[in-house]
Computed example of a mutant assay.
Amino acid sequence: MGLRDRGIEIKKPEQIAAMRRAGLVVGGALEVLRAAVRPGVSTAELDGIAEDHIRSAGATPSFLGYHGFPGSICASVNDEVVHGIPGERVLAEGDVVSLDCGAIVDGWHGDAAVTVAVGAVPAEVTELMRVTEEALWHGIAAARLGGRVTDISHAVEKHVRSHAGHGRSFGILEDYVGHGIGSAMHQPPNVPNYGAAGRGPKLVQGLALAVEPMVTLGSPDVEVLDDDWTVVTADGSWAAHFEHTFTLTPDGAWVLTALDGGETQLAALGVPFGGR
């Protein structure tokens, strides 16, 4: 069965170019949000900042109204892993907030996320954030044309597991995964953050994926709050979430939601850059 027969969307170059435009809007919005995070700011204020940025760039927020979601971003604080609803919560010194953002340009989506410290946070939380973000880049770096989706999954898990031990535990969420992306925000195939390499659909030119490790300082078990959106850790441990949308070209990986296309991070990992 071919990729298209499994509902996997293969984009034309001009469609990838539209996704890059959407990705630049998302990347820019996350930079603006990162700069706006401080003690005393509410998650609703961050949501307004993101929506203003997205609309002023001529794009549309992907999240707003998606299955009824009421915000333009997801803002998840401390033990909230993903899908936090922006609202009256005010950030305090020592919090961490995961900001997930999506934008649509000409019908094509970009999706990315960062976790940001609010002032000084404990060393173990800084390490959690560092390892999770590095795992994202190791996952993207493992992708090659002709490879398989779980090459990404295996690289993410391997990096996270390699930093556990010595009294430190990291949990990798299994029920929430990365995904295909294109003319819709969530498409097949799923991109798990764990598992053996060499499985799943083949990585081909025109396929775009959102890779998004979600890692906790404790158990990977999670619960959904009564708002039917916010995912929290079952044990109250804090979490980090990083995400980028990327594609593969004959020259290498091209991270559509990174402002530099991922060139700096990929070069640091010795991986060819496929942007243009």
Rank of each mutant, 00 (worst) to 15 (best):
L259P: 08
T115L: 02
D221Y: 11
W137C: 09
V215E: 03
S76K: 04
E9M: 05
E88P: 12
E45C: 03
M214E: 07
W238V: 12
F63T: 04
Q15M: 10
V215L: 03
V211I: 12
L217Y: 12
M185W: 02
F273W: 15
M214G: 02
E93T: 12
E212P: 03
K158C: 07
L203M: 06
M214R: 15
F242D: 02
V125Y: 08
V26D: 08
D226P: 01
V41R: 06
R161N: 12
S42R: 06
V131L: 07
G182Q: 01
A117G: 09
R276C: 07
A184L: 08
S153V: 02
G146Y: 02
G40T: 14
F69D: 02
T230S: 14
H138G: 05
A75R: 10
V255C: 04
G23T: 01
R199N: 13
T43E: 03
R55D: 13
V105P: 05
V26S: 11
E80Y: 02
M185V: 14
A92S: 15
H138V: 08
S153N: 04
T126D: 13
A35E: 15
S76I: 09
C74S: 14
L3N: 03
F170N: 08
P188W: 02
D79M: 10
S219E: 07
V77Q: 05
G262V: 04
T233H: 07
E14P: 00
F170L: 10
V224T: 15
W254G: 03
P86T: 09
H159W: 13
I85L: 14
G58H: 13
H166V: 07
E127P: 02
I10H: 00
G68L: 05
E157I: 11
W229H: 13
R148Q: 07
T257C: 03
A112I: 00
V25P: 08
V131I: 15
P220E: 03
A36W: 00
V232I: 15
L217K: 07
H244N: 14
V96S: 11
V271D: 04
E133K: 14
P192Q: 09
A258W: 02
L259S: 13
L3H: 06
G102F: 01
A196M: 13
V160H: 01
R4W: 04
P189K: 01
Q205W: 01
G58K: 11
I10F: 01
Y176V: 13
P192I: 05
A141S: 14
V25F: 07
E45S: 12
L3W: 00
V41S: 02
E223Y: 11
V90I: 15
D151R: 07
E157L: 07
A164G: 14
V191Y: 01
T115P: 00
V232L: 09
V231I: 15
R89M: 12
G94P: 04
G87C: 06
E133V: 06
D111E: 10
P61H: 10
V90N: 04
D251S: 14
H186P: 00
R130F: 10
D227M: 01
R144T: 08
E223F: 10
W137A: 10
G146R: 01
R199I: 05
V131S: 05
I8D: 00
A50E: 11
M185N: 12
P189W: 03
D47V: 06
R38T: 01
L33N: 11
V25D: 05
D95I: 12
L30A: 09
A103T: 07
F273T: 05
G275N: 11
